[in-house]
């Protein structure tokens, strides 16, 4: 079985995000980028499946500018077998991504798609679900545990009320959550091998998908700055402020 893992290039989550001066978006120039952490977990799960004999090939796919090849190389260095890069602008909407991935699935015919439950930049949490719908496949979302059982997969979903155990039909799209695994570090031999692994490039047009945006961003703003705390003199003042200013008691 082949596993397809879409990986998104996002601003490194330890970097402070700044809004562009003209409020049209987020500043990306000279900002450190990294693989979306949830996608990293997806890569790790695909590799574990392969190492346990449950899959024979792991293919990483990324959609975006040329720099996204670095993100694919990161997946290859972790152990993915080959990469596919689809040239596109950095800002691309989940529906367009899902349509592109559907075409990749048609060509690659994987048995599973592992993908992060959401990207930490736009927090859309849509791509996996849209892809499953376009393909007519089963989907397991927010997954923190998975076991493949022949034609089906037992997944554990993290939902508000606790954990939900589902059995889903294969092929399937599985969106992974934080607690599924701890991604590995890429080892030096694998980093070197990754340079020689195949990485195919294609454009959105090659796949016949219209990726023109359907949404218009009107304005992006910084969240309001948190106000500095104050010191109160005594309990009475504290109670007064909690009652009359914060209105929490």
């Amino acid at each position: 079985m082949k596993v397809l893992v879409p990986v998104k290039r996002v601003i490194d989550y330890n970097v402070k995000v700044r809004v562009k001066a003209d409020n049209t978006g987020v500043e990306l120039a000279n900002v450190k980028m990294a693989m979306n952490p949830f996608d990293e977990i997806a890569v790790e799960e695909a590799l574990r499946l392969k190492e346990s004999g449950g899959a024979d090939e792991v293919v990483a796919v990324s959609i975006g500018p040329t720099q996204n090849q670095e993100t694919i190389r990161t997946a290859l260095a972790m152990g993915a077998d080959r990469g596919i890069h689809i040239e596109a602008p950095h800002e691309i909407e989940p529906l367009a991504v899902a349509k592109l991935l559907k075409e990749v699935v048609a060509r690659e015919e994987p048995g599973l798609v592992f993908v992060g439950k959401q990207a930490i930049d736009d927090d859309c949490n849509q791509t996996g679900q849209m892809l499953a719908a376009l393909l007519g496949w089963a989907q397991g979302t927010f997954v923190s545990g998975i076991e493949i059982k022949g034609d089906s997969a037992a997944v554990i979903r993290e939902v508000d009320g606790g954990l939900e155990h589902l059995e889903i039909r294969m092929p399937a799209v599985v969106t992974v959550d934080l607690r599924l695994n701890e991604p590995r570090y890429a080892s030096l031999p694998n980093i070197m091998k990754a340079k020689k692994k195949p990485l195919d490039s294609m454009s959105a047009a090659d796949l016949g998908v219209d990726i023109a945006p359907r949404l218009t961003i009107t304005r992006v703003e910084e969240p309001p700055a948190r106000e500095a705390g104050i010191k109160v003199c005594d309990v009475a003042e504290l109670v007064d402020k909690l009652k009359n200013e914060a209105k929490v008691i």
Binding site: D12, N14, V15, K32, A186, S187, I191
Partner: peptide, 27 residues
């Protein structure tokens, strides 16, 4: 970093290594 470590690996100075791919890994 990669090339220095790779050469040192070939020369037997380095046995295994990893390079942080994100700030989280670096920390």
């Amino acid at each position: 970093m990669q090339e220095t470590l790779a050469t040192a690996f070939e020369d037997g100075l380095v046995i295994d290594a990893t390079i942080a791919s994100s700030e989280a890994q670096r920390r």
